[in-house]
């Protein structure tokens, strides 16, 4: 049993205009990754976070989050089989709602970005740059309001924004996403 979702879906109180992959018209190219080594130091002071301040969370996916609509990776799917993933009631109920998730930023191809992939564990491979590497099934595509600098990839980050469900293929990159967050804030977990 699996759910077929259709697009477009109604978004909630998302900031407008919402950036998206195909709107940025920004071509992803490998050479951009070459300047990564210079990023790590500057990476922390990036996004103007609008999240609840003073979080003491330390691990992605940690239970008992106080925030309203906190969504853990393991809560996204009710079941899995060879015929697909079944979206959980909680995930479906949050479609179009403001949510908070914690995970890891997958290394993007460019140091400045308008979108990135949020994963449940740090990525040991780079599907953007390696042709034989696959993304995990439970990734979340995060769109940013403005272009920003990447955060460290080996430390948990927290994303707040409006959740959107439904298969969508980016015309420019061919990237297919199922779960997206239009972020209102992204920060490193303290």
């Amino acid at each position: 049993m699996h759910i077929h979702l259709t697009s477009p879906l109604t978004r909630g109180a998302a900031p407008s205009p919402l950036p998206s992959l195909n709107r940025t018209k920004r071509r992803i190219s490998a050479p951009g990754a070459l300047i990564y080594p210079f990023l790590a130091l500057a990476a922390l002071a990036v996004f103007a976070a609008v999240l609840s301040a003073g979080s003491d969370a330390a691990q992605a996916g940690q239970a008992q989050k106080p925030e309203k609509n906190f969504l853990r990776f393991e809560e996204m799917y009710a079941s899995a089989s060879s015929l697909g993933l079944t979206l959980s009631e909680k995930l479906l109920s949050l479609d179009g709602e403001s949510v908070v998730m914690e995970g890891f930023m997958a290394p993007p191809l460019k140091p400045t970005l308008k979108f990135f992939v949020l994963t449940s564990v740090p990525m040991s491979i780079c599907p953007f740059c390696s042709t034989d590497a696959n993304w995990p099934s439970n990734i979340v595509l995060v769109f940013l309001k403005e272009e920003a600098t990447a955060l460290p990839f080996d430390r948990p980050i927290r994303v707040a924004g409006v959740l959107e469900l439904g298969t969508e293929t980016d015309e420019e990159t061919g990237f297919v996403s199922l779960v997206r967050i239009y972020a209102t804030g992204v920060e490193a977990v303290k």
Binding site: I3, L5, S82, L83, G84, T167, V176, L178
Partner: peptide, 22 residues
């Protein structure tokens, strides 16, 4: 690897088209 056999509209699919190879 059923992800390569399921149509892209199915959650978990890695296809970039609507073919259901199963």
């Amino acid at each position: 690897g059923s992800q390569q056999f399921l149509p892209q509209s199915t959650p978990g699919s890695k296809r970039k088209d609507d073919r259901n190879l199963i």
